[in-house]
Nucleic acid binder design. Structure first.
Lengths: 219, 219
DNA sequence: AAATATTTTTAAGTAAGCTTAAAAATTTTT
DNA sequence: AAAAATTTTTAAGCTTACTTAAAAATATTT
């Protein structure tokens, strides 16, 4: 399947998870940096291939076949990230950029070899779960916007779900990285902000960030 | 640059080395599995980009810029082959197939990281020399069609320059592989055939094969 | 609920990278 | 060196993945 199609399906998958399921053509177009018209166009083509269900003016919905394709690409992306992270001294941002290209030129055979080589890891260097060869994925974490603030309850950062360099730089600067411990001290639900404590620093995060920082409860 | 252009330039480079410099559009077309018309078309486009010198009905000749691009792609191909060979249990044929795709989606930065990781190797698993980051390449071997048959002179196989599965299978079956020792016992120049001795078996090879099996003199 | 703004869709057009068919040039055979 | 065969080129056309501009529908604001 073409790179354009794989990326389109992947974008629907990602937007379906992340935002409030806003997978109308315009959102996908923005994600991919193409025009709305191009997104509508592509949506029709994918519908013919039975990768999405398409109804005019509605959200784009992946079919089982489409979901399978998206997970296959996501699997390859995250396996590449894990491999490049292990072998080379590269920034997470660089690794992401390389994986973004390699993911589309990787046979299932090679993906499985990479997975084996790494010991069939369940998570990539961002903490994102790696779907297995059958497209199954296991996650238990939640965004910190939904974390509760019970006294003394601490969390472990499990993922930073973004490809934005500015966001990564911000995270790096404040010690927000995969595996680190934080305390969610307060939710300002009205203003959609969250206050956290990390390394004895209190940080107030707005929705853009709280929705893409994921954590697991600390045991 | 696009995949199609990189492959076109690479094909000219390869044909310029291998065959009797037969780099007319038809040969490149055959190499790439496209029509002659498409090859002529592409040749004109590459000329505009100053990647080749193009004159109607003549051989296609890479400019310095074109050669540089070809060597850059070849470098990435061979580095991928070396890496995949080291990490995974895959056949040389599979490795070649994967590298053929990955080579076009690899930044110079990543290529250099792979090279460093492998200790900046000079040869890939086929024995083909890996151009360095500046596009320099070092070779001393010759095809067995040109090897001389001096009494008792033996050679070490340095490369099997092909992507053809049948050829690889043939080589595997007869012990023709990188590093093995052979004796070139007779040149039938009139018939363009070469007789070799390997593992006490005498094999008579025709030009198709003698022109792509490369050897170094044994010290 | 009307007016306004935004988004989606349609329509027409472009560039890349191919195709086939036929004309033009070159190469090979006799 | 003429005839035959092959190769290269030109021409016209196709598909994919985009674009911009304008029409149609939906969503938001007042």
């Amino acid at each position: 399947m073409s790179v354009a199609i794989e990326n389109f399906v992947k974008a629907i998958y990602k937007n379906g998870k992340r935002d409030n399921n806003d997978t109308k053509p315009g959102n996908i177009a923005k994600e991919l940096g193409i025009s709305n018209a191009a997104a509508t166009d592509m949506a029709k083509k994918l519908a013919i291939k039975d990768l999405i269900d398409y109804e005019k003016y509605q959200e784009l919905k992946l079919t089982d076949k489409g979901t399978k394709m998206a997970l296959n690409v996501v699997r390859k992306h995250r396996l590449w990230e894990a491999l490049l992270f292990k072998l080379f001294d590269l920034s997470l941002h660089d690794i992401h950029r390389e994986a973004e290209l390699l993911e589309h030129q990787t046979s299932d055979l090679l993906a499985n070899k990479i997975s084996d080589y790494l010991g069939n890891p369940k998570f990539d260097p961002h903490g994102d779960p790696i779907p297995n060869a059958r497209g199954e994925i296991t996650t238990t974490d939640t965004s910190i916007s939904l974390a509760n603030t019970e006294e003394g309850k601490s969390y472990i950062i499990s993922r930073l779900m973004s490809d934005d360099k500015e966001f990564f730089d911000f995270c790096a600067q404040h010690g927000l990285k995969y595996g680190n411990s934080i305390l969610v001290s307060k939710q300002f639900s009205k203003n959609k902000m969250t206050q956290i404590l990390i390394h004895n620093n209190t940080i107030l995060l707005n929705e853009d960030f709280t929705s893409i920082i994921y954590v697991n409860e600390q045991d």
